[in-house]
Simulated scan of single mutants.
Amino acid sequence: MSGRKERWKPHNESRRERLMLAAIELLEETPAGVEVPVVQIAERAGLAKSVMYRQFAGREELDRLARRDIAERFTNEIEDALDISVGSINEILYRTVEAVVAWVQGHPRLHEFLKTGPSEENSDTDALSSLITSISSSVTSLVTGLAGVVGVADDDAADTMTFAIVSMTEATVTRWATDPSPALPRERLISEVASYAWHVVDGVARQHDLVLDPDLPLTTIISQLAARA
């Protein structure tokens, strides 16, 4: 019996993937506030409605896994933009904010869907809040790693700083993207938010007696600070 289950496992995983991707595709095509029917998801995936209920415990599980997939897509784009090996601090901040703007503006329904429930089982936190915390943790690890190069260790300050920047960026971009008549054009918004992020980073650095040049390649700054240390 167990051997039979193993043989069917790839087939079932493929069906689950097809159903989840179909749900995400239809979500993007559906007006805000309108729920995508299960039968429509099954039809888009090329499967019978009954298959959906054999692959998932119910609609709640399908939605939860869809949120997880959406959050991973968002995270991957942000982490690509955060590549510290290329560019200055200003350039890294600008392209990261630009990536957030592009994703939120390009996928408004998916972004809104992240607020409708959790992405993890037995969680009371909606997927967007979990996503912000996850990205903040990734950035915190990066910041504390860089700080360790120059002998500065303040994990609590780094955690507070990165969460403030990430949550501020997401909230500001969301407000701009959902405003039918935004006060700032797209490029100005990106520049402004990146500037706010830089001032937070600069303020924390100066508290540790570090003066950073935001226009130098970050790898150069790290090398210089390491040499001084």
Rank of each mutant, 00 (worst) to 15 (best):
R67T: 00
V200A: 04
T178I: 15
Q224N: 11
I165W: 00
V193W: 04
W8S: 11
K115Q: 15
T116W: 13
T125Q: 12
R73M: 05
D126H: 04
N90Y: 06
E13P: 00
S191F: 11
T75S: 14
I24K: 00
S137I: 09
V86G: 15
G148C: 09
E43H: 05
R15E: 12
E60F: 02
V166K: 07
I92W: 01
T144K: 07
S195Q: 03
S14R: 13
L210E: 03
T178S: 10
I89R: 02
T133M: 14
W176T: 05
W176Q: 02
L142F: 08
L131E: 02
K49M: 12
K49N: 10
I92R: 02
A127T: 01
G117W: 01
G151Y: 05
N90V: 01
T219D: 12
L189W: 02
V152R: 03
V149G: 08
L110C: 06
T160W: 11
E29F: 11
E120K: 14
T174F: 03
A42K: 00
D80I: 11
R54Q: 08
A226V: 10
E61F: 00
I135L: 03
E43W: 05
D124R: 07
V86H: 12
I92K: 01
E121Q: 13
R59F: 01
P118V: 06
P185F: 06
L62S: 00
E13D: 11
I190D: 00
A66G: 00
D156I: 13
L212C: 04
L216P: 01
D213Q: 00
D209Q: 15
A57I: 12
S137M: 13
E25S: 13
A227Y: 13
N122V: 12
D63T: 04
D213P: 01
V139T: 07
T219H: 13
V204D: 03
G148W: 08
E77F: 11
S129C: 09
K49W: 13
M168D: 10
V211F: 11
L65S: 00
E60A: 06
S136K: 01
S137A: 14
L128F: 09
Q55R: 07
E121N: 12
K115H: 13
Y196F: 12
A127V: 05
L146C: 08
D215E: 08
S119Y: 14
V38I: 06
E91P: 04
L184C: 08
R64D: 03
H208L: 06
A48C: 10
Y196W: 15
A197D: 08
D155C: 10
R64N: 06
Y94D: 06
L62M: 02
S123F: 10
A23L: 08
E35W: 13
